[in-house]
Design a protein around this nucleic acid. Structure first.
Lengths: 103, 103
DNA sequence: GTGAAATATCAAGCAATATTGATATGATAT
DNA sequence: ATATCATATCAATATTGCTTGATATTTCAC
């Protein structure tokens, strides 16, 4: 396996996985949501209200974050609480270092 | 100035700057270009050829990277050599840590 | 100068994605 | 069971940005 970005199946997959991750967090609203969640678990209405986003738009972005595995959910009666998926984020941070930061 | 992601002019600007950066590097072709350039300076034809990209498309993405300040150029006769702007990238890596990685 | 090579620019087409408005689902309280 | 609150889904529109083809610019060799 070549250790560069052009050849090698494994590197190719990593780059695409990383690209998908970046596309998810590049959106300014999703970035704001992630920042809120970094402070702790929150229900949807405690996300859209401070950010000034419509409920359905917030729900839509949360779905994108959830589909990407970046957040986890927990239902509590009428409320659904969202939180950062720390393990996944740690893995993707490592990918960031590997692809962008190092050297 | 509040130290969170919702309020505070400075935090707002940082998030937008960070979002713009992520949008630039999220594109798979620009990501591949950055990976090539991490190995050292390259002229345009030594970028599009290994990546299998058309010349004008490569040029277009290089312009995006240059406009974002992520790469620097040096003309050498008919050739234009591109290289990573290390200072800028270091700054943005720090921003990544600040906004995403830490805690 | 003329021609050729390397790179850049531009406009048009197209695809992906964000946003909106309306509506549906799921849970609780009465 | 009905009403209400919290959240999710869907279809339509709007927007953004990638890609392409054609053409322009810059530099060098002759």
């Amino acid at each position: 396996m070549k250790n560069n970005c052009v050849e090698g199946r494994s590197e190719f997959n990593k780059l695409n996985e990383f690209s998908d991750y970046l596309k998810i967090i590049a959106d300014i609203n999703r970035l704001k949501i992630l920042c809120l969640l970094k402070k702790g678990e929150r229900c949807v209405c405690n996300i859209n209200e401070p950010l000034g986003l419509r409920q359905n738009l917030t729900s839509h972005h949360l779905k994108a974050l959830r589909d990407a595995g970046l957040v986890l959910t927990r239902r509590d009666g009428k409320w659904v609480h969202y939180r950062i998926n720390t393990e996944k984020l740690n893995y993707l941070n490592e990918l960031y270092n590997e692809i962008i930061s190092r050297q």
